[in-house]
Design a protein around this nucleic acid. Structure first.
Length: 161
DNA sequence: GCCAACGTTGGC
DNA sequence: GCCAACGTTGGC
């Protein structure tokens, strides 16, 4: 049984379309600079699945599913002076930040907006929907995962209003 | 652009 | 260890 997660990315920084264009539809998930989020990255295993979420987007929404294809390893962007993710407190001897590699599995035919998720029964406890939640890497409960996956495959309402 | 929520920093 | 100041996130 894989673990389930949610990863946020601002599409102006890196969108799911960018991932689709990446070699092997795979990318490293660099730049996480929050300890709680980092600890979740560390807890990921190869084969785990994650929702790809567009934050600061119009609308903010779950837009796809990715698979973890490489477990946590040092985020070397922290060692690059000039990188927006540079952190002089992270050394090669004692790396402070980690990243994983993810591969695109699925782009949802219709994004599931944050607003629409708020009204779904069974998601009341979801971290994403918690007031004030800012975690960019968060665990998803199995039942939440299943509910959302099922929603994502629902046929669009036709005809549209 | 606003601002609430939250995390980090640093003086004491 | 407290907490004010400051910075960031991210919905709206």
């Amino acid at each position: 049984m894989p673990g389930y997660w949610l990863l946020k990315s601002e599409p102006s920084t890196f969108s799911i379309a960018d991932l689709a264009r990446s070699p092997k539809r795979t990318t490293c998930w660099e730049g996480v600079r929050n300890y709680q989020a980092r600890n979740f990255l560390r807890a990921m295993a190869v084969g785990d699945l994650a929702f790809f979420y567009h934050s600061n987007a119009d609308p903010p929404a779950i837009v796809g599913i990715v698979e973890i294809v490489k477990a946590a390893y040092p985020d070397y962007f922290a060692w690059r002076p000039g990188s927006r993710y540079f952190d002089d407190k992270s050394s090669k001897q004692n790396p402070r930040w980690v990243m994983v590699d993810v591969r695109l599995k699925e782009i949802l035919r219709a994004p599931l907006s944050l607003e629409s998720l708020r009204s779904v029964r069974g998601l009341e406890r979801m971290e994403l929907l918690r007031k004030g939640s800012r975690l960019s890497v968060q665990p998803v409960r199995e039942n939440e995962w299943k509910i959302i996956v099922q929603l994502s495959q629902a046929k669009p309402v036709s005809p549209p209003l």
